[in-house]
Design a protein around this nucleic acid. Structure first.
Lengths: 203, 203
DNA sequence: TAGACAAGCAAGCAATTGCTTGGTAGGATG
DNA sequence: CATCCTACCAAGCAATTGCTTGCTTGTCTA
């Protein structure tokens, strides 16, 4: 009956079944949406009975919160790595595109990031504010690379609107890209770079 | 107790309160999402009691269907008008951008189009198939203008992916654009055109 | 071997959900 | 005047919802 209130002792080992709940919630929230997913759905997908997820989470909202934070952390880490790899502007940009698309479309992280992108509005106000702050920090990296690209003459516009157009083009792929289709994520990143950059294409 | 099954006699006058239900549903579906909106919410917003909307619609799904079709018809008509206005490529393109963004962001049609963009997955399979067919026809107009732009050397890529990048950039605005902010819809359209086209900017 | 704790289960409760049912006010129609 | 039809209301039903409660199991430690 007791609960691991904030940090369970020896969280690494203890968080094993908890993460099963998060993964199940992530997949279902992406497939059916937050509001249309029931606790019973999540419990069953995690191999539990309907009351058991509440051992790990206080509310359903908390499950959404955990999913969204996981998505945000993963995409931030992946893109930050490429931004700081010390490559020239165009290569840095394309690597960041690839990393973002990989996170958003790849088997591994697509559930978390799709939920982040499409279900955040169902968060409670305080959790939403936290997520928005983290998202702003993430998007600042894109503003930074746009600035670099403009200095290099590779792009004409590094405004806030330009950043949002770019992120929109990327994030919208979650609604149409199909894994196993004719287009790999790498080629998609290359194609978006060519679509956006003002430079002779590199096929 | 009887219902106007398919076509109510003298539909023009009779469909008055019905359209109040559609407008209320559109606004609530956009604000809270389809699954999180209750019949009671819709009825109250339309000034009715909770059972009354079912005089006009068989199910809640049918209400979503009506909202989505309204959004699709409006944006299709607005953009088709500009595509066929007989202007030169760049002007045609920018006018289409403006028309789409006007529909998606403007007071008048944003409820319907935002629901179309973000809630279509909650449609029943048969209704979804119908909507997808109409959406494909809509997007074909964008493929067409991209082809024209490429012939004119204004864009480097007129592939299917390029079209989806463009639509993504536009449709994502529904998640960040705020009416009354510093950026008008007209300027937004101009800025997106400059972001995408390979030509000296026209400020 | 005894105790403690992590991690669940079985059962159910109060509220909410989509939707149905029988009725009815008010205008049009004969 | 009698009838019909449109558009709604008042009430409620069966199912589902998020969540709670008391209890059990397996495992680790002293």
């Amino acid at each position: 009956m007791k609960r691991p209130v904030d940090l369970p002792p020896s969280a690494a080992a203890a968080g094993n079944r908890r993460s099963a709940v998060v993964r199940a919630a992530g997949r279902l929230f992406r497939e059916k949406g937050y509001a249309a997913t029931t606790i019973r759905d999540i419990a069953q997908a995690a191999g539990m009975r309907s009351g058991s997820p509440f051992y790990h989470f206080r509310t359903k909202h908390d499950m959404l919160h955990a999913v969204v934070l996981e998505g945000l952390a993963a995409v931030h880490a992946a893109v930050a790595l490429e931004l700081n790899a010390g490559r020239p502007p165009r290569q840095t940009f394309e690597a960041m595109l690839r990393a973002h698309l990989q996170q958003v479309l790849g088997e591994e992280g697509r559930d978390f990031s799709a939920v982040l992108l499409h279900e955040s509005r169902h968060l409670e106000p305080s959790a939403l504010a936290e997520v928005i702050a983290l998202k702003d920090a993430y998007e600042a990296m894109w503003q930074k690379v746009l600035k670099i690209l403009k200095r290099a003459g590779l792009v004409a516009d590094d405004s806030k609107a330009a950043r949002l157009f770019l992120l929109g083009a990327m994030n919208w792929t979650t609604l149409w890209y199909r894994t196993g289709g004719p287009l790999s994520v790498e080629r998609l990143a290359r194609q978006l770079a060519n679509f956006v950059l003002r430079e002779p294409d590199k096929p």
